[in-house]
């Protein structure tokens, strides 16, 4: 089978069969050829369809995202290997702000060449903190971020961030480093210590260990605050089966 026929087979197959919840298929020029029918609306794509659009640059408006997605697609074609990415994007419907994207090369068995790319998406079922916190913050650094909102809650936005980081780090230096990284301003050990004193007072705790237990009991340890990160695409593991062949 030649590559054109293989591409047609991919298009026809996906027009008849839906084998992923959310997906699109694009050709080697990144033109979207097939879609699942519902994800464009969830992603708030203009016209509620991906069809007739290009994955890059048209659908990735921020420059960093355009460049990254283009690189991922090129790598996918060149290496013939799929890759998985966590993607945070606030223009999607809120339930889908954070999703996992899989870029899968579709190869013609006869020629061994990549003829198309499938991009499938799924909401992640695991808390974001299960991924490396520093890498996640770094991945979103400098990118579009939501404004901090304080709805008159028990804790201010900064206090919530420090509480979350206190649970996941070993000392004030680490918290100060991550807060500085996230907000692009200097947070030193003294400043973190002051915020932590307020937290101890608010939760009526005698020490950090007690505060950590309360954080866990209230389920606040799993809430990776959006105010800590800008939009990002973060690579998770690539499934490479070549070693086992």
């Amino acid at each position: 089978m030649d590559n054109n026929s293989a591409l047609n087979l991919i298009i026809n197959y996906h027009k008849q069969i839906k084998d992923d919840i959310f997906y699109i298929i694009c050709d080697l020029n990144y033109n979207v050829l097939v879609e699942d029918g519902s994800s464009a609306a969830l992603a708030n794509i203009e016209g509620k369809t991906f069809l007739g659009k290009k994955l890059v640059p048209e659908l990735s408006k921020a420059i960093w995202r355009t460049q990254l997605v283009e690189k991922i697609l090129k790598d996918c074609i060149a290496s013939k290997m799929s890759s998985e990415w966590l993607s945070l994007r606030f223009s999607r419907q809120q339930e889908y702000w954070l999703i996992q994207l899989n870029y899968i090369p579709l190869m013609n068995f006869s020629t061994g060449e990549v003829v198309g790319i499938k991009v499938s998406a799924s909401p992640i079922k695991y808390p974001l903190y299960l991924y490396p916190i520093e890498s996640i913050i770094t991945a979103g650094k400098g990118n579009y971020k939501l404004d901090e909102i304080n709805n008159g809650e028990f804790l201010s936005s900064t206090e919530q961030e420090v509480l979350f980081l206190t649970y996941h780090t070993a000392n004030y230096e680490e918290i100060a480093y991550l807060m500085s990284l996230a907000h692009n301003e200097v947070f030193n050990k003294t400043k973190i210590s002051r915020i932590n004193s307020k937290l101890l007072e608010k939760y009526e705790c005698a020490n950090i260990e007690e505060l950590k237990v309360i954080t866990y009991q209230k389920g606040l340890h799993i809430k990776f605050l959006v105010s800590l990160v800008g939009e990002f695409m973060f690579p998770v593991k690539t499934f490479n089966t070549t070693e086992s062949k």
């Binding site: 087979l9 799929s82 090369p105 579709l106 499934f239």
Partner: peptide
């Protein structure tokens, strides 16, 4: 379309189009 025909479409597709994902 009968289920057997659909199954044949799926088989044909996976024989001709491959990826590195275990399926």
């Amino acid at each position: 379309m009968k289920p057997e025909q659909i199954q044949q479409i799926i088989k044909d597709y996976h024989h001709e189009i491959i990826s590195d994902i275990p399926v």
